[in-house]
């Protein structure tokens, strides 16, 4: 028993673990708030598309940084943020112009993002291996500044995502009705896309660009199995996201697994459990009525 306690206290007193835990919990909690709007808009894959474009941003940042004589990778994250936001807004404009369907626009983003990143990183003097840290996350290299940036961005995402929740909800759940009510639906759609882009760049450090969208979507997939209202789905998804973020990180520390993948596998396992136990849950609920 005391061995366990020692192990826990050793783990929790490690500043690196503290930082990783802080970011995993904050990002895990904020991402599903954005994810709920995306699922309602049937754009669950938008985060993945943005993640791919962010890879081009990483390489572009790397290239510009090299040109300016900065440390390698100094501009990678700012590059990712800019590319992600631009990519998200562009896909929203392409989608709403009606010339290209949403899923086709997404497909173009997937291919263009990865290809652009792989080509540009070579131009910048890096190798494809350079990109791997961004593709799969790098929680073990978090600095204090990274944590501060993560907290500020996650706070911004939560502030906008919650303050604008009714308009975001209205535009996401019935765009025609919202438009016919005089809501600036185009504006709110761009806001939700931009929120997704910010979430992608924050969550990129935790799980990597390839798994980034899972933090937004899987907790929503879990809670929508049993919640009955939009806001409860969102609230519980945030809680599930924060808890799986923390639990996945601890598990990865214990078993020496990659943290991003562990968090996502845990979340998916939780989904499977929730889906299997749903009929039982429904029966209990209806018998109580």
């Amino acid at each position: 028993m005391s061995e366990y306690l020692e192990y826990w206290s050793a783990m929790l007193s490690d500043p690196l673990v503290q930082r990783a835990l802080a970011v995993a919990i904050i990002v895990g909690g904020a991402a599903p708030v954005v994810g709920t709007y995306l699922v309602q808009r049937r754009l669950a894959l938008l985060g993945d598309g943005i993640g791919h474009v962010a890879l081009t941003g990483v390489a572009l940042g790397w290239l510009i940084g090299a040109g300016m004589g900065l440390a390698p990778g100094a501009l990678a994250i700012p590059g990712a943020v800019v590319a992600a936001v631009v990519g998200a807004v562009v896909i929203e404009l392409v989608r709403s112009s009606g010339r290209t369907s949403g899923d086709l626009a997404l497909a173009l983003m997937f291919y263009g993002g990865i290809a652009g990143g792989a080509a540009l990183i070579k131009v910048a003097g890096g190798t494809s291996a350079t990109l791997v840290a961004y593709l799969f996350g790098s929680l073990s290299t978090l600095s204090r500044a990274d944590v501060a940036t993560g907290v500020i961005l996650a706070g911004l995402i939560l502030a906008i995502g919650l303050a604008g929740r009714w308009a975001l909800f209205a535009a996401a759940s019935d765009e025609d009705f919202a438009k016919a009510s005089g809501l600036p639906t185009g504006f709110w759609n761009v806001v939700s896309a931009a929120l997704a882009a910010l979430t992608v760049t924050v969550a990129m450090r935790v799980v990597g660009l390839l798994l980034v969208s899972a933090l937004m979507i899987v907790p929503v997939a879990i809670t929508q199995l049993w919640a009955r209202s939009f806001w409860r789905t969102m609230g519980w998804a945030a809680l599930v996201g924060a808890v799986t973020g923390a639990a996945g990180l601890v598990a990865s520390y214990w078993y020496g697994l990659p943290p991003g993948a562990t968090i996502v596998v845990l979340a998916i396992a939780l989904y499977a459990l929730a889906a299997i136990s749903r009929p039982v849950f429904e029966r209990v609920r209806s018998s109580r009525r």
């Binding site: 808009r41 604008g164 209205a170 759940s173 009510s181 005089g182 600036p184 929508q224 209202s229 939009f230």
Partner: peptide, 28 residues
Amino acid sequence: VSPAGSGVPTSALDVVRAGLLTGWRPWP
């Protein structure tokens, strides 16, 4: 037809409350 409630579970009350939005004001 309305896509409301077809993705994320949405209560009837939430749908009706959203009907009170108009213009740039982001909350009912």
